[in-house]
Simulated scan of single mutants.
Amino acid sequence: MMVSQQDKITVSQTVIVITNFLLGTGILTLPRISVEAVKTPDVWLSVAFGGLIALLAGFIMVKLSMEYPEKTLYQYSRDIIGKWPGRLFSLLLICYFLATSSFQVRSVTEVMGFYLLEETPLWAMAMVFLWSGIYLITGGINPIARLYEIIFPITVLIFLIVIFMSASIFDTDNLRPVLGKGIVPVMQGVKTTSFAYTGIEVLLIIVPFMRKPKQALKAALIGISFPIVFYVITVIMVIGALSIDGVTSRT
């Protein structure tokens, strides 16, 4: 099935779509769960290594998709493993995305209920997000990309404001010693921090929607790099402000 030219997105839009798919409510829990896994101030190294794994996975996904530039994974999986196994794989992938979406909706409603709308039922907040999302996807990928173009600068602005406000309580001693217990705890934490980069699977679907699919690899590497920087800075600032003991008891 060919994608119409009206439903194609630019390289910059692709970068922003990938970035927004990777950034989620996990950024709020990442410092705590990563510290629980590593138990040293070197958590930021685990996050960085997890990002390198995401870059490698993104490279593989894009290279695979570029072999079938006019097809999504749902379509070319049949060419690789056969018609019926491909359909089964597509069904499993759909179930995965539904489960991931459910988790994200529940997470964001929990955050809103905790910080903003304490008396509002979770189902009411969830329905607003679901209805908005369903309305958005009926227009194809272009409205989604344009919305992300609006959201992303706002996200960056708020992120920078929070970081600068936290600078006054940041203490570099909370990040020392670097590799005090060696590299082993850092590598053990990579398994946990890698989950922060879920959403990278969009690379298996987005390439056919690009106006310049030959630049998909460039878009993927840049799009993944933004979340890596966001996550590493977040972990460094949170641990520097609260210490690893403080982080384990707070989200």
Rank of each mutant, 00 (worst) to 15 (best):
S107L: 05
S107E: 12
S107D: 10
S107G: 14
V108Q: 06
T109W: 08
E110H: 09
M112F: 14
M112N: 04
F114N: 10
L122D: 02
A124H: 03
M125Q: 12
A126E: 10
A126G: 11
V128G: 05
L130Y: 04
L130K: 06
L130W: 08
W131S: 15
W131Y: 12
S132C: 12
S132V: 08
G133C: 06
I134T: 11
I134G: 00
Y135V: 14
Y135E: 05
T138S: 12
T138F: 15
T138W: 11
A145F: 10
A145T: 03
Y148C: 08
I150V: 15
I150H: 13
I151P: 02
F152M: 11
I154W: 06
I154Q: 01
V156H: 07
L157D: 02
I158P: 02
I161M: 14
V162D: 03
A167Y: 12
S168R: 13
F170S: 09
D171A: 13
D171N: 15
T172E: 06
D173K: 13
D173C: 00
P177K: 06
V178Y: 07
L179A: 15
G180Q: 03
G180V: 03
K181G: 03
K181Q: 15
K181C: 09
I183R: 14
I183N: 09
Q188D: 04
Q188W: 02
Q188T: 14
G189K: 01
V190P: 11
T192N: 05
T193I: 01
F195R: 01
F195D: 01
A196Y: 01
Y197G: 06
G199W: 00
I200K: 14
I200P: 05
V202A: 12
L203W: 05
L204P: 01
L204H: 09
I205Y: 12
I205A: 08
I205Q: 05
I205F: 15
M210L: 03
R211V: 07
K212P: 00
K214R: 11
K214A: 13
L217Q: 12
K218D: 00
A220R: 08
L221S: 10
G223E: 01
I224P: 10
S225K: 11
S225W: 09
F226H: 01
F226D: 01
P227L: 01
I228V: 06
F230G: 04
F230A: 06
